[in-house]
């Protein structure tokens, strides 16, 4: 908890890191100044891309005492404005799950190698980033906590599976190796409350440690203050749930 007589500083910058198949990709890394030790967070951007909101979110984690890194999962689509790059990825049907998991694992290893780290790393994302965070927590060993904010397509129909998405994240639940916090809106269409209930049932079935919160009066993306979907009370409470969960499992 920050108090007004405490020193506070932060360094935030673009760095390079090793992702899937040894590819070098870029990432945004924000960390508190000081010797640490700090817990780590991998911050997974949403479908609209590696954008300003995600830079702010990365710095928000650093402000709360986490060494936070946000890998650019769209690096291989070329460079331009975040929207133009994200539109390119959208046209290509998104990034393959295996590639995303490899890049997120790379970000995990980047943090684990930092001398300021306390040894623990979480992963968080919203929208497609929430899905990617959950997927990575199931597929990449080493995470200590995962936060999925309204990740759609965790539950997938058989007809939606293809080379890029060969297995629904739900079906990897048995391999989840850390506690999960889920933040959802009751008015969301992806995931729907029914899909969230299915996800919860799967976690329960496999005896996983989880905490799900479903907010009434909120739809998809209710943390995004720059979108009509923003819901102030639900967003403030959701962030409080995130900080409490991470403090319990990472600090």
């Amino acid at each position: 908890m920050y108090e007004t007589n405490m020193y506070e500083g932060m360094l935030a910058e673009t760095v390079t890191m090793t992702g899937t198949n040894g590819d070098i990709i870029n990432a945004y890394y924000a960390r508190p100044l000081g010797p640490g030790p700090f817990p780590g967070m991998v911050v997974i951007h949403h479908m609209p891309g590696w954008d300003e909101w995600y830079r702010e979110a990365t710095r928000k984690f650093a402000h709360h005492g986490y060494a936070a890194i946000s890998p650019n999962l769209y690096y291989r689509a070329g460079h331009g404005t975040p929207e133009d790059v994200a539109a390119t990825v959208r046209a290509a049907g998104g990034v393959a799950d295996a590639q995303a998991v490899g890049d997120i694992a790379g970000a995990l290893h980047f943090l684990k190698a930092q001398p300021i780290l306390n040894g623990k790393v979480g992963v968080w994302g919203t929208c497609s980033g929430g899905r990617h965070a959950y997927l990575a927590a199931c597929r990449a060993p080493g995470f200590d906590a995962v936060v999925d904010c309204w990740g759609g397509r965790v539950v997938m129909a058989e007809s939606d599976l293809n080379d890029k998405y060969p297995v629904a994240p739900l079906d990897y639940t048995k391999d989840l190796s850390c506690p999960v916090l889920g933040i959802f809106g009751a008015d969301d269409h992806s995931p729907t409350p029914e899909q969230v209930a299915q996800h919860e049932a799967e976690l329960k079935k496999h005896g996983k440690v989880y905490e799900f919160h479903m907010y009434d009066g909120a739809g998809h993306g209710f943390f995004y203050y720059d979108r009509p979907a923003y819901r102030q009370q639900q967003a403030v409470d959701g962030w409080q749930k995130i900080w409490a969960f991470l403090e319990k499992h990472l600090v």
Binding site: P48, A87, R90, A91, G221, P228
Partner: peptide, 13 residues
């Protein structure tokens, strides 16, 4: 490229 997905600017889900 025609999609039905999240927009960047239009005020819809």
């Amino acid at each position: 490229n025609v999609s039905y997905d999240h927009p960047f600017h239009a005020p819809f889900e």
